[in-house]
């Protein structure tokens, strides 16, 4: 495998600092494509993409930021919209020098797909191509129904059994994607986001994706796994102007963790 250099750093945003885990080939002559920025689902962190990142970083820089309020990134102090999250992430990319003459590709999964959507709609000039996976695109009624399910927040400090129960379910029982150590640190990142960690999903189910998706002006790839967002992703494909769709139905929800090579191959085929 090519030697990959991986490091962590911060960039500035309206909420303070955005934390990045970044990887690139040690020999920079191997870099052949624009950088790729990967936006994670809630309530996790950029570390979700660690396996995918190491594959894609063989011939490009791959940034995995922590969305504001998650991982090691500073976050909003009041409940944000998805536009707020997108703006915070875009701030960081602009702070790092990306522009109309120095573009990036972007990839997002679940909440991250809507973060990517907002970045692409707010700053199309810095985006080359967009990959969205597991897109939570619902009708207003469907959104409201989902919002009712998730609202109320994470009762870490009010329900004495919540943390222990979540730990057993997400880490120990083995049904979640990834090795034990990955599942453990994913749980830790959920704890780090705290009781406000639900703000990410709250922003998802209050975003009018029907208004935003048609605004994507660049080429878009949709990747669907065999999970709850399969149909919403198919529905999203119908309203994006320049789109192609790949369905990896042999892969479960976090397909980029269970089969990173397969997902990377599709991303590379599209991005170049």
């Amino acid at each position: 495998m090519a030697d990959i250099k991986k490091w962590k750093h911060y960039a500035k945003s309206r909420y303070g600092q955005v934390h990045f885990v970044t990887a690139k080939p040690v020999d920079e002559r191997a870099i052949k494509h624009p950088p790729l920025v990967c936006f994670h689902p809630s309530p996790t962190s950029g570390d979700m993409f660690r396996d995918l990142q190491m594959i894609l970083a063989r011939d490009r820089v791959v940034y995995c930021p922590d969305t504001p309020g998650f991982g090691s990134s500073d976050g909003p102090t009041t409940e944000p919209t998805m536009a707020d999250y997108g703006a915070g992430l875009a701030d960081a990319l602009l702070d790092m020098g990306y522009s109309a003459t120095n573009k990036v590709d972007i990839f997002g999964f679940h909440t991250g797909s809507l973060c990517a959507l907002e970045v692409a709609v707010q700053h199309p000039e810095i985006i080359n191509k967009t990959v969205l996976s597991g897109v939570p695109h619902y009708t207003p009624e469907g959104r409201a129904e989902q919002h009712k399910i998730i609202s109320g927040g994470y009762p870490m400090l009010t329900n004495p059994d919540y943390v222990g129960t979540m730990y057993k379910r997400l880490v120990l029982d083995g049904s979640e994607a990834g090795e034990l150590e990955q599942r453990y640190y994913r749980f830790v990142n959920r704890l780090r986001a705290g009781p406000k960690g639900w703000w990410g999903i709250n922003a998802v189910f209050t975003m009018d994706t029907a208004a935003a998706l048609p605004k994507l002006k660049m080429p878009v790839l949709l990747i669907a796994f065999n999970e709850m967002m399969l149909q919403p992703t198919r529905d999203a494909a119908k309203i994006i102007p320049d789109v192609r769709m790949v369905e990896l139905l042999d892969l479960p929800m976090f397909g980029f963790i269970t089969a990173p090579d397969k997902v990377a191959a599709e991303v590379q085929k599209f991005l170049g």
Partner: peptide, 10 residues
């Protein structure tokens, strides 16, 4: 962490 299921909750 991985051998006592009740450890983290407790």
């Amino acid at each position: 962490y991985f051998t006592d299921p009740e450890y983290v909750g407790k």
